[in-house]
Design a protein around this nucleic acid. Structure first.
Length: 318
DNA sequence: GTCATTTGACCGAC
DNA sequence: GTCGGTCAAATGAC
């Protein structure tokens, strides 16, 4: 995480338009890195928690989803500020889209529209996306269905296209593309790296439960405190404290100086979580990145290989 | 038989 | 005209 950029930009978000756009760009970069780290950390932490006890893994999984969701929403808000600087003081989220795309979609209702074809191509602006770089592109907490693959110009590997597995059931329009950009290096144990671009927000609810992760975390926290009566009580209580702090962040997505500070504070808790679970020294975000980038695929028999030859940890269905 | 993936074709954006 | 995103029939795995 680029602390220096974060701190230097934190006081200039609401300023003149140029400074605001610049700060928003810096924040977007920071948050994209944050999302990448959280995604990789989740792939590392959850299997370890699953071995220790499934219930806590479920809670942590919900927390990770909550954090990623908050980041995505904050990113979207930053984009709105960039597109319309007058919105910097407006906390209400609105949907923005490419004007041409909107016109095309609505004109599809016309008599000249070809059946089932008017929305076939919906080119999306880069502003409608979140990009991550990760060694575990297929492990992000959502279920996806591959619907296409294409060779892209000047790319060594094809790009795969995925849509949410609940698109038909719940009309969830989230999609993503996955493209490998770095070969696996057996000499240095460096895993293959992929660029994952997410489009749109998930509107599905796969478990059919209340998706208010903050509320779920709060409930678990109460249970944990009341039931912890042995040597694990202190550890449980400490984890619950982390849950509570993160849930506070997750309940708000307004992007201002206050929120960014809160977000960074919560993410610093991830360093503690990573250190506890990996028995490694994780005091900086660079170390967190190093730990999260470690690939245990070849060491753990509880890892499966998916249809694409990628390692997937087994800890239940998402 | 069912479901997910593959793959060629289609189509809009550039 | 080229490129890239999406569709849908074909194919394969179970």
């Amino acid at each position: 995480m680029r602390h220096s950029k974060s701190s230097s930009s934190s006081s200039t978000l609401i300023c003149d338009n140029d400074d605001r756009s610049s700060s928003a760009a810096v924040l977007r970069e920071i948050m994209a890195r944050e999302q990448s780290l959280v995604t990789q950390l989740r792939a590392l932490v959850l299997p370890a928690l699953q071995l220790a006890g499934g219930e806590r893994a479920e809670v942590v999984a919900q927390m990770f989803n909550c954090i990623l969701d908050c980041s995505a929403k904050a990113m979207a808000e930053l984009k709105l500020i960039r597109l319309d600087p007058s919105r910097a003081d407006d906390a209400l989220p609105v949907v923005v889209d490419d004007k041409r795309r909107v016109r095309k979609i609505f004109s599809g209702d016309g008599d000249n529209a070809k059946p089932n074809r008017q929305q076939r191509k919906r080119r999306r602006l880069a502003d409608d996306s979140v990009t991550l770089e990760t060694p575990v592109p297929h492990y992000d907490g959502h279920q996806w269905r591959k619907y296409g693959q294409k060779l892209i110009n000047n790319a060594a590997h094809p790009r795969s296209y995925y849509k949410c597995a609940y698109k038909q059931e719940q009309d969830c329009r989230a999609t993503k593309t996955v493209q490998q950009y770095q070969e696996e290096d057996g000499g240095t144990d460096a895993p293959a790296m992929y660029t994952v671009v997410y489009y749109g927000q998930h509107t599905c609810n796969p478990a059919g439960n209340d998706t208010d992760a903050a509320a779920v975390v709060k409930t678990e926290s109460t249970d944990g405190l009341s039931s912890g009566g042995d040597a694990d009580a202190d550890e449980l209580s400490r984890s619950d404290s982390q849950c509570s702090n993160i849930s506070v962040t997750c309940t708000s997505v307004v992007v201002d100086h206050h929120q960014r500070t809160a977000s960074i504070e919560s993410n610093s808790k991830l360093l503690d979580v990573a250190a506890d679970l990996t028995n490694a020294e994780v005091n900086t975000y660079d170390q967190l990145y190093d730990v999260a980038a470690f690939s245990p695929f070849d060491l753990d028999t509880d890892w499966a290989i998916d249809a694409h030859g990628h390692g997937l940890p087994k800890y239940g269905d998402w």
